[in-house]
Design a protein around this nucleic acid. Structure first.
Length: 224
DNA sequence: GCGACAG
DNA sequence: ATCTTGTCGC
């Protein structure tokens, strides 16, 4: 798919904050996509050579069957350090490279990380969704900000994630008896819809099949 | 000022 | 994220 790569990436945290503050108002947290979802994609990142090389993998699966349709891989020098709250500036460049190689344009992308469950409401899922103008959902393995009540052990239960009196996402039990995942709107997807799709993409394991496939492809262990 | 802190 | 073997539990 075509990806606009003319985007100017920041070199400092100060510049990054300015970009986040400017983009946060453009994020849409309501459903804004056609009802017929045919393809869902997942992205995964890996790093090599002491973190100097970024490796991005994209997996496109059909929906709701979740059969793998296509996968792509891309490398590029890492240009931004890992700083909590600024993950997108470190990972999105390589992700865009991998997405450029994709033939099948996904209807929704599930990202490894937060959507609006972010200090300035612009986690990696929201940022990527804005750049691509595609619906995105944030699915994180751990919490960045916010608090939530305990939730029942059985799959499907969830509790709202609260930050400064706002519901920014949900702690969702994607599998019975395991730690919850943190779901939030990325762009053009509401929270309830996001939860719905995450559950439909999580038939067996804690993480969505999309990210699991991408992870397998980019697994450092298997590449060694 | 002291912790917390996506991947 | 990454460094890494076996091990506990359903």
């Amino acid at each position: 798919m075509k990806v606009d790569q003319r985007y100017a990436w920041p070199l400092t945290v100060t510049e990054a904050i300015a970009i986040q503050e400017q983009l946060r108002n453009q994020v849409i947290t309501e459903d804004q996509f056609q009802e017929t979802i045919q393809y869902v994609a997942g992205v995964d990142m890996g790093f090599e050579a002491n973190g100097t090389i970024s490796r991005a993998a994209v997996a496109v699966l059909n929906f709701p069957d979740l059969q793998v349709i296509e996968t792509t891989l891309a490398y590029r020098p890492t240009s931004f350090p890992y700083i909590p709250g600024f993950l997108s500036f470190r990972e999105i460049p390589a992700v865009l490279d991998a997405l450029e190689k994709v033939q099948t344009i996904p209807d929704i992308i599930l990202c490894d990380g937060q959507g609006i469950a972010h200090p300035r409401r612009l986690g990696i899922a929201s940022h990527l969704g804005l750049l691509l103008d595609l619906p995105t959902i944030g699915v994180a393995k751990s919490l960045l900000i916010g608090k939530h009540e305990e939730l029942p052990e059985t799959r499907g239960n969830w509790q709202p994630l609260i930050h400064r009196g706002e519901i920014i996402g949900a702690a969702l039990r994607s599998r019975t008896g395991v730690k919850p995942v943190y779901v939030s709107s990325g762009h053009k997807v509401s929270l309830s819809t996001a939860i719905n799709y995450v559950l439909r993409c999580t038939p067996k394991y804690r993480l969505p099949e999309t990210t699991r496939v991408a992870d397998k492809l980019a697994s450092a262990r298997l590449r060694k």
